[in-house]
Simulated scan of single mutants.
Amino acid sequence: MSTSDLINVGLSEAADDKLEELKELGVFADKIDGYRFGVSLAIAQGVVPGELVKRKNLFNVGSLDPDQSLRKSVEALMPEALEETTVYRLIERLADWGVSELHAQAQAGEIDFLALLDQASTKAN
């Protein structure tokens, strides 16, 4: 793992547009909440997304993860995925995947947060 990590995290331009739309639809009060949920969803689903295309900076790491709970979660739950990247670069990829997944569900009708939580708890057991 590289020792140099990001001080600002972002999304692909496409995922940023999707996150903005989720905020406008009232799914999330703030984009940063949707970003965090996207990371959590991707972790819960066990995905390891590829690199971002046309990356756009969005948040300072200190604002996104002030208590480093995201960092600690990724380090504990995905150590093998960190062999070739840094924690916050992986967090960006997870957020990008999660936001895109949430947006797809919103476009298909409505996001079923209870079903997402059930899936996560089933995978954890």
Rank of each mutant, 00 (worst) to 15 (best):
I32V: 13
E83L: 15
Q45T: 04
Y35N: 04
A14M: 08
E101V: 04
T85W: 02
E83H: 15
V99K: 08
I91Q: 10
R55E: 06
K18I: 00
E75P: 13
Q105K: 14
A44G: 14
A120C: 06
A115W: 00
Q68D: 07
R89E: 06
M1E: 10
Y88T: 03
A104W: 00
D16V: 00
K56A: 07
G46D: 00
A106H: 05
D67M: 14
N60P: 00
G38I: 00
I111C: 12
E21L: 13
E84Y: 11
D118P: 04
L90N: 11
F37A: 13
W97V: 03
F113N: 11
N8H: 10
L90D: 10
K54V: 00
G109H: 05
H103K: 06
P79G: 13
L41K: 08
L114D: 11
S73Q: 09
L77T: 06
T86M: 09
V47C: 07
E20M: 15
P49Q: 10
D16Q: 11
G38V: 02
V47W: 03
K123F: 05
L6Y: 05
A76L: 12
S4A: 12
L70G: 13
L19Q: 06
T3V: 15
N125V: 05
L64Y: 02
S12W: 02
S121F: 09
A15H: 03
K23E: 10
L94V: 01
V48F: 06
K31G: 12
V9C: 08
L82R: 10
W97F: 12
A15L: 03
L90V: 07
D30S: 11
V47A: 10
G46C: 08
K72M: 12
R36T: 00
G38H: 02
E75Q: 15
S63F: 11
W97I: 03
D96F: 03
G34Q: 07
R89V: 06
W97D: 09
L116C: 03
L41Q: 03
Y35D: 05
L77Q: 14
D65Q: 08
L64C: 04
L90C: 12
I32L: 13
S73V: 05
A108F: 01
D67Q: 14
F59S: 08
F37Q: 10
Y88H: 07
L90Q: 11
V48C: 11
N125T: 02
R55N: 07
W97H: 14
E51M: 13
Q107Y: 02
K18P: 02
G46K: 05
V39I: 11
G50W: 00
D112M: 13
N57S: 10
G38Q: 04
L25E: 09
I43C: 15
L19R: 06
V48E: 11
D118Q: 15
